[in-house]
Design a protein around this nucleic acid. Sequence first.
DNA 1: CTATGTGAATTTATTCACAGCA
DNA 2: TGCTGTGAATAAATTCACATAG
Lengths: 186, 186
Amino acid sequence: MFLSGQGQQNVSSGNLACLVNAKASQIRKDFSYFGAFGTPGVGYDINKLIRQIRRILNLGDVRKAALVGVGNLGSAILAYPGFRMYGFDIAAAFDSDPKKVGKKISRVTIESTSNLRTLRKRKIHLAILAVPRDAAQRVADLLVEAGVKGILNFSPLRVVVPKKIKVITIDIAMELARLPYYMPAR
Amino acid sequence: MFLSGQGQQNVSSGNLACLVNAKASQIRKDFSYFGAFGTPGVGYDINKLIRQIRRILNLGDVRKAALVGVGNLGSAILAYPGFRMYGFDIAAAFDSDPKKVGKKISRVTIESTSNLRTLRKRKIHLAILAVPRDAAQRVADLLVEAGVKGILNFSPLRVVVPKKIKVITIDIAMELARLPYYMPAR
DNA sequence: CTATGTGAATTTATTCACAGCA
DNA sequence: TGCTGTGAATAAATTCACATAG
């Protein structure tokens, strides 16, 4: 994205370090845990590096994900270009509002949440939860029932699921709350 | 939020630990870095604990924040109840689209981005960046010029700012990309 | 010469375990 | 008795420093 555009073919650990600001030795050590794929005196081949990272993160092939809750946040997520970049395809969208069901947003037709049970059959194992907080736990339960293995949770609620299921929660207000800690006076 | 509702008056480090799943000793050690405010044999007074944490995070008083970019994501943020909970007040919203300017969403009237320069006068030092990636750097520059000290950046772009300015970037697709790493087979 | 990969040294974080307070 | 606060012990992460490959 930054580097692969064109121009350079290689990056050194030093370059990468300052890009994410860290120490060069950190970069090399981290990579070394996953095997050696740099060239002494030259650096890392950018394309090879990208392939390695995709492998490490299990991003080998495109993964299907389901979006639940097509409100403002959900719509933003559907429109977000970044997902494709990381190998994700939002292949289904669900909402409980009958007025939205059947509408098409960003090439995806919104389905009723009563269809969630079809996820297993459709081999969709990732879900993005963007429903109001009151509905979050209930929907999470449905997702687990439908065979989902990982949930990206945007509701400001700690959903509880069997521990086989991986949940990543993003509470955007909590992120904002980190800012003042680093800021000058008040 | 979870605890202060009613019922219990105190929490033990053990309670807190399992709530966020960590070890009890971790909780106690962490708190101890900021002074001792628990009662042996009893635990932590919930209200005192909340006050302490607010103090530690510099969340003493309500802080004004500006939202730039009132698309789907921006609208979701405006509607998000969580911000008030952490002491933030989204006091202004900006968009470059003339059709949106003047509209009111969640009690905030959308202003033209040419008004960004007024932020300093209005003592707004935090901004939430929810504009398309192409506009992100340009807007960030304007924000810095307008005296903003902290930016919560939702665009999938590494904005560059003077290092006095604190930026927290949330790339939601990158968060999703962490999921498969923890998941079973592929 | 330049930049990697990696043991060894150092720093930082976590956990243990227990003295002492309510 | 029950739980805090904290030194001491352990574990983990970061940084150094250098032998080695291109």
